[in-house]
Computed example of a mutant assay.
Amino acid sequence: MKRALFLLAAVLALSTGPAQADDDDDREHHTSSAKFYGTVEALPPSVRNGIWWVNGREVIVSPRTKIKEKRGSIAVGAYVKVEGYLSGIGLAADEIEIKGSRRH
């Protein structure tokens, strides 16, 4: 009987899959932080959330990303500073600061 209960518990544990870490846990365990400057080349339709392209790099912007627009607005052509960390899917931005408005 004990063996049957143990097997049942093992099957239930495996069927639920591994526990998912939340974003805060992922940030605590990252090993490669990154900071770079560049020009915004493309923005997603929602502008604030999704994949941005900055100097040929894919930047993941989430609702948790702090965006500072004191020196300009988000737009293709804006010069920005990106700070974040390398995650399993690319560079996840913690902060993006607009350093200059669109260049003509």
Results as ranks from 00 to 15, higher is better:
Thr65Leu: 11
Ala4Tyr: 08
Lys99Ile: 02
Tyr37Trp: 01
Val82Arg: 07
Asp94Lys: 09
Lys35Val: 03
Trp52Pro: 06
Gly100Thr: 05
Ala21Tyr: 07
Leu43Cys: 14
Ile96Trp: 02
Thr65Val: 10
Ile89Glu: 14
Val47Cys: 12
Lys68Trp: 00
Ala4Met: 10
Lys70Thr: 00
Glu28Ala: 12
Tyr79Pro: 08
Ala19Ser: 13
Val11Tyr: 11
Thr16Pro: 03
Arg3Leu: 03
Ile98Gln: 07
Thr39Cys: 12
Lys2Val: 06
Tyr37Arg: 02
Arg71Cys: 08
Trp53Asp: 11
Leu91Asp: 02
Val54Gln: 11
Tyr85Gly: 01
Lys66Asn: 02
Glu41Met: 12
Ser32Gln: 15
Ile96Thr: 08
Leu91Thr: 04
Tyr79Ile: 04
Ser73Asp: 04
Pro18Lys: 14
Val47Gly: 10
Leu12Ser: 11
Lys66Asp: 05
Ala93His: 02
Pro63Phe: 11
Arg57Leu: 06
Gly77His: 12
Val40Tyr: 07
Lys70Trp: 02
Ile74Ala: 02
Arg102Pro: 00
Glu83Trp: 09
Asn49Arg: 04
Gly72Ser: 13
Val54Tyr: 10
Ser73Ala: 09
Arg102His: 05
Ala21Ile: 05
Thr16Glu: 05
Asp24Cys: 12
Gly88Trp: 09
Met1Cys: 11
Arg57Pro: 06
Asn49Thr: 05
Val80Arg: 03
Gly50Cys: 04
Arg102Tyr: 06
His29Pro: 01
Ala10Lys: 09
Ala92Met: 04
Gly17Val: 10
Pro63Glu: 10
Leu8Met: 14
Leu7Asp: 15
Ala19Lys: 12
Ile74Pro: 03
Ile89Val: 13
Pro63Cys: 05
His30Phe: 07
Leu12Cys: 11
Asp23Cys: 10
Ala78Val: 11
Gly38Val: 12
Ala19Leu: 15
Ile51Asp: 02
Gly77Phe: 14
Gly50Arg: 01
Pro18Val: 12
Ser15Phe: 11
Phe36Ser: 06
Thr16Tyr: 07
Leu5His: 13
Glu58Thr: 00
Ile60Trp: 05
Glu58Asp: 01
Lys35Glu: 05
Asp23Asn: 13
Ala34Met: 06
Ala10Ser: 05
Val82Pro: 06
Val47Leu: 15
Asp26Phe: 01
His29Ser: 03
Lys2Pro: 04
Leu86Asn: 05
Gly50Val: 02
Ala92Trp: 08
Arg64Phe: 11
Leu86Met: 09
Asp25Ala: 15
Leu14Gly: 15
Glu58Gly: 00
Ile96Cys: 07
Asp24Pro: 10
Arg64Gln: 14
Val76Ile: 15
